[in-house]
Amino acid sequence: MTSGIGAAEPMQTTRAAIGDSDPDGADRYNYAYLDEQTKRMIRRCLLKALAVPGYQVPFGSREMPLPYGWGTGGIQVTASIIGPDDVLKVIDQGADDTTNAVSIRRFFARVAAVETTEATAEATVIQTRHRIPEQPLREGQILVYQVPQPEPLRKLEPREGETRKMHAYAEYGLMHVRLYEDIARFGRIATTYSYPVMVNGRHVMSPTPIPKFDNPKMGGNPAVQLFGAGREKRIYAVPPYTDVRSLDFEDHPFAIQRWDECCALCGAGDSYLDEVILDDRGGRMFVCSDTDHCGTRRARGHTGRLGADAATAAAAKPRGAAR
C-alpha cells in the first residue's frame, strides 16, 4: 500500500461515486444510501425517541454526502424510514423550490427511487427545514425536521454534561430566566424562532428554528414528528397527539406573530408571510412562505393584491412536479 497507486491507470476504486456524470452510480449504493445496519440503528433510536417524547437520543450519526448543518440529520432519519411506496416532499423555509430543498429531493429521487411531490396532502414523508406546512397534517404522515442545534438549553449552558443533567432532573428554571430577561428588557418575550416547548409535560425541547408562529401546530398533531440532528448526533420525536406547550409566564402568555398584511398573491390572512423586496425605494410585498399552500389557494381562485400579475407569471412558468 505504501507504494501508492499501482501502475494500472485509470486507478481502481471499489465503487463509483454518485455524480451527475454517472447516472447509474446510485445502483452501487444501498437503497436510500445508508446501509441496512445503520438504518436499523437509527430506527431503534427513533423508537426510543417516540417512547420518551422530547428526549434527545444520541445516535451514531454517519457522514453524509451533504455538509453538516445542511440537513444531514433529517436526511438520515428520512433515509431510515423511507420505502419505495412513499411520496416525499422536501421544503426549506416553507418552499419546495429553494436550492437546498431541491438538492435533498434530488438526492432521494436518485438513491431511493421515490416519488416526490410538492403537495402537502399527497406526501407521506415531509422533510422540512424551518417551517411546518400550513395545511394541517393527518394521521400516517411523517414530518422530519432538520435540526441544527437540538439542545434548547445550549445558549444558556454550553456544557453537554450539565445540560443532560438539567434534562434528567427536569431543572428548567434557567429557560424561564431567558424569557424573564426578554420581558425585562423589551416588555415582551422577544424570542421569535426556536421558541422552546415543553413536551408531554416532561422534556423541554427545541422545536428547531421554526418561527414561533408554527409552535402551536406541534401539539396534538395527528402526524409523527421526527427530529434529526446529524452534526450533534441526536434524534428526538413527538408522537401523534402529544401535548406540546410553548413556555411562557402566566401574565405574559405565549403569542404568535401576526401581520397587518395578507399574502399579496393568494390573499391568505392566516399564513406565515415572507417579505419580498420589490425595488430600492422601499417597495415590498408579503407572500406566503409555504409555496404549496399559496399555490393551492390560488388554484382555488383566491387572489391577493398582486395576484393577477403573479397568476400570469405562474402560467408562463408552470409549477411542475419535482421529478
Binding site: P67, Y68, D92, Q93, H130, R131, P211, S289
Partner: peptide
Amino acid sequence: VEASGFVQHLKLPHYVDFQAELEL
C-alpha cells in the same frame, strides 16, 4: 467536516427566521 459544514450552512436561506426578527 462538522465545523466547515456548520459555518457554511449560514449560506442557506434563513429568511423565515429573519422575517420573525424583522417583525420583532
